[in-house]
């Protein structure tokens, strides 16, 4: 990967990943998307790429091997990785999941909408918000 800005998306469902890429392309964003199918692979990637970290992490919660919640706990206890903003994008509406995520300083928690139209809208809003936000590095 070159030195371009990129997004890290941790998601085990191939359809969800394709859907995200499509929605993102529709917004004319050219930022690259790096993805892994579980928290452990994502974690290992970050630890090996400290010189070129993603601008933002999109995180699914229900993944095998290392779940999103475990990934969150790990990263927010890591001195140099904790500054990366993390947005949770999950189908879980469980109040414990929401609480745990905010307690671990997530930048936002979004439940995956069922219809594609609503999904595209959600991604658009997330994009608009982060397009005007300052990021600390």
């Amino acid at each position: 990967m070159t030195n371009e800005d990129y997004i890290l998306y941790l998601e085990d469902d191939a359809v969800e990943l394709m859907k995200f890429e499509m929605a993102f392309t529709k917004l004319n964003r050219t930022m690259q998307i790096q993805s892994f199918e579980n928290g452990l692979l994502g974690w290992e990637f970050l630890v090996n790429n400290k010189r070129h970290l993603p601008k933002i992490i999109i995180l699914d919660l229900k993944m095998p091997v290392m779940s999103g919640l475990e990934f969150l706990e790990n990263i927010k206890n890591h001195l140099s990785l904790r500054k990366i903003p993390i947005i949770v994008l999950t189908s879980s509406e469980d109040k414990n999941d929401i609480l745990f995520s905010y307690e671990n300083q997530v930048a936002g928690y979004f439940v995956k909408p069922f219809s594609i139209k609503d999904y595209d809208e959600t991604i658009q809003r997330i994009n608009e918000y982060w397009a005007v936000s300052k990021i600390s590095f």
Binding site: D13, K19, K62, T90, S91, E93, F114, S115, I116, Y119
Partner: peptide
């Protein structure tokens, strides 16, 4: 069970709906 209803059962359905779209 509520946990599955909120994720494990919904996720494949959402996927099918997406592909249908």
């Amino acid at each position: 069970f509520a946990h599955i209803a909120s994720h494990d059962l919904k996720a494949p359905l959402t996927g099918i709906n997406t592909v249908l779209g």
